[in-house]
C-alpha cells in the first residue's frame, strides 16, 4: 500500500514558546496585535537586505528563547530555513546563535516542515528543545525571484506580496496548558503544469488539496476548528475551495477553511491576491494562531503550509512549477 505520509506523535510534543517579528509594511495586517515585534526599517537597520534578513532571523530566535525563559545553550537543535539562494540569511543567523543547526528547505512550507521534523526528533527522546521556523524578507526574495524592487512592471491580480517577517518556536516534551503536535502529514510534490510565477496560488492549490485529503482520510471523525493553508492567496484559496467542493472531502467534519496569505493584509488592494513567502505562514501560525490556541479559543486545528518549488532558472528554462504542502495538526487540551 502506498504510504500516505501521515504520522501520529504519541509523546505529544508541545510548542512551549514562539516569537514573531515583521517588517514595517506588515503593520496593516489584521494580525498585527499578535506580532511580538514590528521593525520600523525594512532592512532592520542593516546595510543590505540580506543582512537585514539575517538580523531578523537572529533577533526572532533570541526572542523565542527569552520568551520561553530559556537560554540559547538549552537548544538542542535549530531547524530553520528561508528562500534566499543557499539559505545564507538563516545560515548566517545560525552562525551568530551558535546552536546545533540544520537548514531546512521546503520553500514557503518550511514553517511546517521544520515543525514536523522537530516533532520526530522530540519523539525519539534524544532531544529536549528543538527550535523551528522560517522567515522571508520582501526585498531579498523579490529581487531573487522576480524583478528589481523599483522596476515598474505591472503585476497581475493573481500576484502576491512576499512578507517581511519570521516566526520561530521551541518544541519540547509534552506540557499541559501548551498546544501540542498531534499528528502530521508529509506531503508529496504535485505538479499541475502551472507555469506562471506571478500566479503561485493556483500552482500550489493542488498540493494543499492533496495533503489535506490525505490527512483528513487518516483522521476520520475528528472535528477541526479550521484548516488553514499557508500562502495560497485569495486566488489560490478560491481554487482550493472549488477543489474541495467538487470532491468528497467536504463530507469530513471541517466546514471552516482559512488561508493565511489571503487574510494577511486584509483587503488592501495594493497587495493584490495577498501575502506569500516563508514568513507568511510562519508569522501567522506561530503568532496569532498560537496565541489563540494558548488562550483556549481553538481546540484542534490543521495547518497546511504550501511551497512552490521553483527557481528563477527553472521557470526561465520553461519548466513547470512543482509544489509541496505539509500539514501539521495542533491540539490544545
Amino acid at each position: 500500500m502506498k504510504k500516505t505520509g501521515t504520522y501520529q506523535f504519541a509523546s505529544k510534543p508541545s510548542i512551549v514558546s514562539t516569537a514573531v517579528s515583521v517588517g514595517p509594511l506588515e503593520k496593516v495586517s489584521p494580525f498585527h496585535p499578535h506580532f511580538d515585534f514590528i521593525y520600523e526599517d525594512e532592512r532592520i537597520g542593516q546595510e543590505t537586505n540580506e543582512k537585514g534578513h539575517s538580523q531578523l532571523i537572529e533577533d526572532t530566535c533570541n526572542m523565542a528563547v527569552t520568551k520561553g525563559g530559556f537560554q540559547l545553550q538549552d537548544i538542542d537543535l535549530l531547524l530553520a530555513g528561508d528562500l534566499v539562494n543557499e539559505m545564507t540569511p538563516t545560515n548566517f543567523a545560525a552562525r551568530q546563535l551558535a546552536t546545533p543547526f540544520m537548514g531546512m528547505f521546503s520553500a514557503c512550507a518550511t514553517s511546517v516542515s521544520s515543525l514536523i521534523t522537530a516533532s520526530f526528533f522530540l519523539e525519539t527522546k534524544l532531544m529536549d528543545k528543538v527550535m523551528f521556523g522560517a522567515a522571508s524578507q520582501h526585498n531579498a526574495v523579490e529581487r531573487q525571484f522576480r524583478y528589481p524592487i523599483e522596476y515598474g512592471a505591472q503585476k497581475p491580480p493573481t500576484g502576491q506580496w512576499t512578507v517581511t517577517g519570521g516566526g520561530y518556536g521551541i518544541l519540547s516534551h509534552h506540557q499541559t496548558g501548551k498546544p501540542y503536535v498531534h499528528s502530521a502529514t508529509i506531503g508529496q510534490v504535485m505538479d499541475c503544469e502551472c507555469t506562471d510565477p506571478l500566479d503561485m496560488g493556483s500552482a500550489m492549490a493542488p498540493a494543499a488539496f492533496d495533503t489535506i485529503q490525505k490527512h483528513l482520510a487518516q483522521n476520520k471523525g475528528t472535528s477541526y476548528d479550521f484548516v488553514m493553508t499557508g500562502d495560497l492567496g485569495k486566488n489560490g484559496f478560491s481554487i482550493l475551495q472549488e477543489l474541495i467542493k467538487s470532491s468528497g472531502v467536504s463530507s469530513y467534519l471541517v466546514d471552516n477553511y482559512r488561508d493565511a496569505g489571503a487574510e494577511f493584509y486584509g483587503n488592501e488592494e495594493k497587495f493584490l491576491s495577498g501575502a506569500s513567502g516563508a514568513g507568511c505562514s510562519a508569522t501567522v501560525y506561530y503568532g496569532p494562531i498560537y496565541a489563540e490556541l494558548l488562550a483556549g479559543k481553538w481546540k484542534k486545528i490543521l495547518l497546511v503550509a504550501t511551497g512552490a518549488l521553483l527557481s528563477p532558472l527553472s521557470f526561465q528554462q520553461g519548466e513547470t512549477i512543482p509544489c509541496i504542502a505539509h500539514a501539521v495538526e495542533l491540539s490544545m487540551e
Partner: peptide
C-alpha cells in the same frame, strides 16, 4: 513602480520605462 502598476505598458514603452529598467537594476 506605482506609475508602472497603474499604467502597465503605458509607462514601460516610452523612454522613461527604459530609464526605469536601467536604474532600478543599478539601485538593486
Amino acid at each position: 513602480k506605482k506609475i508602472g502598476q497603474f499604467g502597465g505598458a503605458g509607462s514601460a514603452v516610452p523612454v522613461t520605462g527604459f530609464g526605469n529598467a536601467v536604474i532600478s537594476a543599478a539601485i538593486e
